[in-house]
């Protein structure tokens, strides 16, 4: 519990970027290319465009430490609208992009919130809500990161509260700091499945023990 291990040498390129330039996100040049805001009909171009968008959204969310997006609100953010060239993405296109990110082709880098566990049909419900997880790290990867953190800080066998993991000062420099409880639970469930952790406790006061 007491162990605070900054480990500055740890290779963590995504988290090092905000340290250098904490306030502004450096948009890639493509962000200033007007046709970027129109979904292309040509399949080749379209898939290239979609993957560019996917990368951009992930990088943007990682930079700003966002774990989910509400598309309706996000459309006016610099991510989806470039005021310099006065171009913005339409809600329909943004949904199409996120939808593509949820597919295997898009690398499952997003998931509609409210669609979990209900399969394809639920996907449309989740899409309707316009809220989605952006998996700049997928739950499996988060599980790995958590395990690695526990390992690194020597907290194996210790009982940790979920609040402790995502809110305490001890984890402030970790990527998962500030993570939504729901996403954290998802990730921990994967650890449980792998047999690396055990979750116990009631609703609102869950604890987790890694072994």
């Amino acid at each position: 519990m007491t162990s605070v291990s900054p480990l500055p040498g740890t290779p963590q390129p995504p988290s090092s970027t905000p340290a250098i330039n904490p306030s502004t996100f450096q948009f890639p040049p493509i962000h200033a290319f007007p046709p970027f805001y129109t979904l292309q009909p040509n399949p080749t171009t379209r898939s290239s465009q979609l993957s560019s968008w996917s990368s951009l959204i992930q990088a943007y969310c990682r930079h700003n430490h966002l774990f989910s997006l509400t598309l309706a609100d996000a459309l006016s953010t610099p991510l989806f609208s470039n005021t310099t060239i006065s171009r913005k993405l339409s809600l329909r296109d943004a949904k199409a992009i996120v939808q593509w990110m949820t597919t295997a082709e898009g690398g499952s880098r997003a998931e509609w919130i409210g669609a979990s566990g209900k399969g394809g049909k639920g996907g449309t419900d989740g899409e309707g809500s316009g809220r989605c997880w952006v998996y700049w790290r997928r739950p499996e990867e988060w599980a790995g990161a958590l395990e690695e953190w526990v390992e690194r800080t020597g907290q194996k066998g210790t009982v940790l509260t979920l609040y402790e993991i995502v809110e305490s000062d001890a984890t402030r420099r970790e990527e998962f700091w500030g993570m939504d409880a729901e996403l954290l639970t998802k990730s921990l469930q994967i650890c449980v499945k792998r047999g690396k952790a055990q979750v116990f406790g009631g609703e609102g006061s869950e604890g987790v023990k890694f072994f």
Binding site: Q26, P28, T44, S51, S52, A59
Partner: peptide, 18 residues
């Protein structure tokens, strides 16, 4: 509709530069 040179293909997003 306006047509542009296809920078979408020529200029793929570099993920690591963020």
């Amino acid at each position: 509709v306006r047509f542009w040179e296809n920078w979408l293909l020529k200029l793929p997003f570099e993920a690591s530069t963020g």
